[in-house]
């Protein structure tokens, strides 16, 4: 009994589907926009010297939100073929943000007091980043998507899982950036802009991986360990990302923060590339099983599906 939601929701194989921008092209565009964001803040870093602490905090908070908004904007562009989910994307983003804001202090500050032990050893940093930072982030992302949009009919293709999860991840990133700016009483514009972009990339890309799994469990029966495996994988990616950034990158006072940025961009491209490939292959497999067109869930418009090439 074939009961797929996904292929039915797509247009017939013979029709020309609405053209959707390439996923990776959108990511590249996003990265370019973030680079421009960093370049602008570095170009006008001198403004910071003229501001008092309140001014620096306000500017820092604007800076904390901007990468997330840029990313959401790019994803709107990616999903323009189906404009309905936009309000839902914003809803998931805000839910992720509120959940992260509510849980940040109790979990990281009180229960785990991560500042007192996370950086003590390399292994505590790695495991702490995975088990605390990664797991809590993954739980928030899953919770936000599950509560706001999972059962909504607008969630009608696997890519939506990625989009909504990234939106929730950006909510977490925004809170992380808020906390960073607030704790430092405002930030230097050049250092701060790179720091918020690097963090945003980390949260968003691992959220994208979790979004793939969420998209899968939305449309298919999966083994019991499938989704927990996805949560674990996303937590590992989050933990590894921040571990690599913290261990191999520059310190807060170093002049090599650009190295962090380049590493962040590289890791994001690798993770998002993997997500794009997985979603495309999953759609092809679903189409092969259903012996239907995969055009409803493909990244690029396809006139027809070559059955032989879908294995």
């Amino acid at each position: 009994m074939q009961a797929s939601i996904m292929p039915d929701s797509g247009p017939p194989a013979t029709a020309t589907p609405p053209r959707r921008p390439s996923f990776l092209r959108s990511i590249t565009l996003e990265l370019a926009a973030l680079l421009i964001f960093v370049a602008l803040f570095n170009l006008f870093a001198g403004i910071g010297a003229a501001l008092n602490e309140t001014g620096l905090i306000i500017l820092g908070l604007i800076m904390a939100v901007t990468p997330a908004l840029l990313w959401l904007l790019i994803f709107y562009r990616l999903d323009r073929a189906e404009p309905e989910p936009k309000r839902l994307v914003a809803g998931v983003y805000l839910t992720g943000l509120l959940l992260a804001a509510a849980l940040h202090l109790p979990i990281f500050g009180v229960i785990f007091d991560t500042q007192s032990w996370l950086g003590a050893y390399w292994w505590s940093q790695l495991l702490g980043n995975i088990l605390v930072v990664g797991m809590v982030t993954a739980a928030i992302i899953y919770g936000a998507v599950r509560v706001v949009v999972f059962d909504n009919p607008e969630f009608d293709e696997r890519l939506d899982g990625v989009i909504y999860a990234v939106a929730a991840g950006l909510g977490v990133a925004t809170v992380s950036n808020f906390v960073y700016v607030w704790q430092h009483g405002g930030v230097d514009l050049n250092i701060g802009s790179i720091r918020v972009v690097v963090d945003t990339l980390g949260y968003a890309s691992s959220a994208g991986m979790l979004g793939y799994f969420i998209g899968q469990v939305r449309f298919e029966k999966t083994p019991l360990i499938y989704l927990p495996g996805g949560v674990l994988l996303a937590a590992i990616l989050t933990g590894l990302y921040f571990f690599l950034i913290e261990r191999t990158g520059a310190n807060s006072f170093g002049g090599e923060l650009w190295r962090d940025l380049l590493l962040g961009i590289f890791l994001t491209l690798v993770m998002m590339g993997a997500v794009a490939w997985l979603v495309r292959r999953a759609n092809e497999e679903t189409a092969r099983v259903a012996q239907l067109s995969a055009t409803g869930d493909s990244w690029e418009a396809k006139a027809a599906v070559d059955e032989g090439g879908a294995a």
Binding site: Q2, M135, V136, R146, Q216, E220, P223, A235, L278, A282
Partner: peptide, 29 residues
């Protein structure tokens, strides 16, 4: 890529099971 041999959509019980599995995983971690 293809965890299920069919394209059958999960029912509410499977989704509840997934939720519980995620909660248990996070708490264990």
């Amino acid at each position: 890529i293809k965890p299920s041999p069919t394209n059958e959509a999960p029912g509410p019980r499977e989704q509840l099971r997934n939720d519980i599995a995620v909660i248990v995983t996070v708490l264990f971690a």
